[in-house]
């Protein structure tokens, strides 16, 4: 087997380990990839993240439920923890910082955590403020540590107003922050009405959308 084929075989296997939430096999597989000289960044992108994208597809097709997704994310996380220290250069390859949180009044964390994980895998620096996050908390964090994108999630219809409050309050304090929104109760139409710059229905789309948004930030700064 050529080195390239061997690398491909290991990466496919790592993706499968994520898909099958086979927690016991991930350490050895990551070590094997490492020993075979595969760039840790490639292992993250073409092994772990590729697996998790497939998990997203299985979830969308209702073949997987939240229990499977959580176990897959655990495997992904474990793999990330092994690989991260070996990633060369900056892990923040998108050169973009996202401050993420579930809005005030809503404590649902599962979707937001998966989005956070996938954004990190996608090369973003992500600060997670957790759940039930107030407008004040976002403003304070941005003032203290800055950020480019605020990513907001809400699952409930009864907390949509909190999303609006956060966007309004951040906009009152900053002029250049972009907003990426999602969650079960948010539609594209709602996102537009709230004044969001990006909207996504799942974690894979959230990464794509964030990448598009990151490009506009860089462009504006260079103009």
């Amino acid at each position: 087997m050529s080195d390239e084929n061997k690398a491909e075989e290991i990466l496919t296997r790592i993706a499968d380990i994520v898909i099958k939430y086979d927690e016991e096999s991930i350490d050895a597989a990551c070590k094997e990839a490492f020993d075979a000289g595969i760039d840790p960044n490639d292992v993250i992108l073409y092994g772990l993240a590729r697996g998790m994208q497939r998990v997203g597809i299985l979830y969308d097709g209702q073949e997987y439920g939240i229990p499977e997704v959580l176990l897959c994310a655990d495997v992904l996380n474990r793999g990330m923890n092994i690989l991260k220290p070996h990633v060369k250069g900056s892990a923040n390859s998108m050169n973009c910082k996202i401050v993420i949180g579930t809005v005030e009044g809503d404590i649902h964390s599962i979707g937001k955590n998966i989005v956070k994980l996938m954004l990190e895998v996608g090369g973003f620096e992500v600060v997670d403020l957790g759940e039930d996050v107030t407008p004040d908390h976002f403003v304070t964090e941005l003032k203290k540590n800055s950020g480019d994108i605020v990513a907001l999630s809400t699952m409930m219809t009864t907390t949509l107003m909190s999303m609006k409050k956060i966007i309004d309050e951040v906009n009152q304090n900053f002029t250049e922050i972009l907003f990426l929104v999602g969650g079960a109760s948010v539609t594209r139409d709602t996102a537009d009405k709230l004044g969001a710059d990006g909207f996504a229905v799942n974690a894979t789309e959230a990464v794509e959308e964030a990448k598009k948004m990151a490009l506009t930030i860089t462009r504006e700064q260079h103009l």
Binding site: Y21, G65, I66, P67, E68, L70, L71, H108, S109, I110
Partner: peptide, 11 residues
């Protein structure tokens, strides 16, 4: 705990 309960459904 939501995460625990969901994971119990498999594990």
């Amino acid at each position: 705990g939501v995460n625990d309960m969901f994971k119990h459904m498999i594990r």
